[in-house]
Design a protein around this nucleic acid. Structure first.
Lengths: 347, 347
DNA sequence: CTGAAAGCGCTAACAT
DNA sequence: ATGTTAGCGCTTTCAG
């Protein structure tokens, strides 16, 4: 018994089933134009009975509009990006627009490929992580003729709009806060960052902030892959054995920071008396740790929401022929002191 | 200075630019059919120079084939699903197929909507989480006439193919392992699960496993939302204050388990001497905890890979008119004992 | 190896 | 309020 080769239903099938022209059926299904409620009912009934699902491929080709938004991100393994996606989803949820996600694995060539494939669907907009792209990628973004929002980072020049935080400033602010608390022998741990520009900028801002106060990082270590929590442990142990004088550890993300904190607590180290700690991201995870790690919120879901909103506004503007200026939104992440950064009471 | 209204380039533009028929340009761009390498070069050069990006909407309509795979999952906030996506991505990466993700927030009505929208793009296949769907959803899946793989769970009857683990069996196996270690006063903590069928089935399998040994859960608590790690802490505290006699705590996911473990360690409770612990999922995070939490791997990325592979094989089979039987793959998750379940040496 | 014609399933624009 | 006509940009099919 072979399954019958299912030719998908077409408007014509519905049209014939209810004796109404294809055009009217189309109008009913899209809630466009005036249709008598009598025929509307008839059409809806037939469509449902048959189990008709419209063909957007044909629809989009005919109408020259595609309700897709391309979203290009480096990874799904780092919770930061799913959170941005959640923000995008939330904003787009009650609109006709639908996000389509592509993942680049932090590789510029892959970013190029992924973007090319997404653009071939002629989406209504692009949301793409970061400001650093290959020339080809930038050219595609420019020439696509659709709204483009570069997200997460604002240290640089976008093709069109951007929404994010300044990672350089984030690093600098953290340096300032640490110094203000009287810490001075500082170690840094983070990912190897040849291609993670945001981590790199945070690091640069951080060292810059220290330098202004005449201070230099005393020790640093970079990792690659593996369980971040475990890496945080290992690196912290290694670093403190190597540089026992350190009085502060700055981690480029909360996960390794949490790992470090757990190790230090195992060792009975007084935090922040002996060693202060700070991470980056403001991940929800931290709330359950034995001690609140100081961190800085990366505004992940807000970035997603704002970026999606820009695409929405732009699409609307394109429909009404309104002009629309590129938006450059820089969010200001706040330091959360937790219990690992503040040395002197409410300092 | 208004930006010129960018009409996207068409095949015709490339055709005119290089003096070759649209048809031949199309052939070159798709590597189909024989084209002299002379003209091939010419076409490729013009296409690149112009920055032409093919229009898949038109292409798919004409060819009646769409290189999209619909992936429908409940959430992005639970790392389980991004990990499944990563598995799918990995398998599909060097194929023409591309995943498109829809999120249902565990709501059956939303699942219906999302699936409807995805099917309207006439994808080559559907990968959808779970076996429980509304009648309408099931009808759409059946009538779509494309390969469907239901993933994560195998306790039930799929529409077509399925890849996953038996959560009922997972719960039962964990119950057996716990009893075998001599624990007998057992508490359970998990999410409120009206719509999380997999969590529910694990719980059912667990109680069933205990019942067979004449044992009942002594206490239980369910939570909703919030930081899982923090919830694990709170619930564990509350439960042990309420039921101080418990000698084992089974958590429906690793995050709350980790929270519970951290709280117990704060209290100086001997693990597993006084209280044994186990979670579920095998999340990477656990590797960095002060003590390895016992858990069970949910085979997340393997499920993604296998599911994608089924879609691939099926698409190939459809092309060659081969027949293809539905696949039902049940993976067997293994218990990882860690350091919180084994009471007696290598017991 | 290359080109010309037809049409994929729908919708914009114009009838009526 | 409803129907008709003509494509959208590409690929299939068939001719050279």
């Amino acid at each position: 018994m072979t399954r019958p080769k299912h030719r998908p239903l077409t408007l014509r099938d519905v049209s014939e089933a209810c004796g109404v022209s294809e055009m009217t059926v189309s109008r009913v299904l899209r809630n466009r134009g005036d249709v008598s409620s009598a025929t509307r009912e008839k059409v809806l009934a037939s469509a449902k009975a048959l189990g008709y699902v419209p063909n957007q491929i044909a629809g989009s080709l005919a109408s020259q509009r595609v309700n897709l938004v391309a979203v290009v991100i480096p990874s799904l393994s780092n919770m930061v990006f799913p959170e941005v996606l959640t923000g995008i989803n939330r904003t787009l949820d009650d609109t006709p627009l639908q996000p389509v996600v592509g993942v680049t694995d932090y590789l510029p060539e892959k970013e190029e490929q992924v973007l090319y494939e997404m653009l071939s669907w002629r989406p209504s907009g692009v949301i793409i992580a970061g400001l650093e792209h290959s020339d080809a990628t930038r050219a595609m973004l420019t020439n696509a003729g659709i709204p483009v929002v570069e997200i997460m980072d604002t240290d640089g020049t976008p093709v069109d709009s951007m929404v994010g935080i300044s990672h350089r400033r984030a690093g600098r602010k953290m340096a300032e806060a640490i110094l203000k608390q009287g810490f001075s022998r500082i170690g840094f741990m983070g990912t190897k960052m040849p291609l993670d520009h945001r981590a790199r900028k945070r690091f640069e801002g951080f060292t810059e902030g220290l330098t202004k106060a005449g201070i230099e990082i005393e020790d640093r270590e970079f990792y690659n892959g593996g369980s971040a929590l475990a890496k945080g442990r290992e690196m912290t142990q290694a670093m403190l054995e190597r540089s026992p004088d350190l009085d502060f550890l700055y981690y480029s993300n909360d996960m390794i920071g949490a790992g470090g904190m757990l190790w230090l607590m195992d060792q009975g180290v007084d935090i922040p008396g002996e060693v202060g700690l700070a991470g980056f991201n403001g991940v929800e995870l931290l709330e359950g740790l034995p001690r609140q790690l100081a961190t800085m919120d990366a505004c992940r879901s807000e970035i997603g929401e704002k970026a999606a909103q820009i695409i929405l506004d732009r699409s609307a503007a394109l429909d009404t022929e309104d002009s629309f200026e590129p938006q450059h939104i820089t969010l200001a992440p706040k330091i959360s002191f937790g219990q690992t950064l503040r040395r002197h009471g409410q300092g």
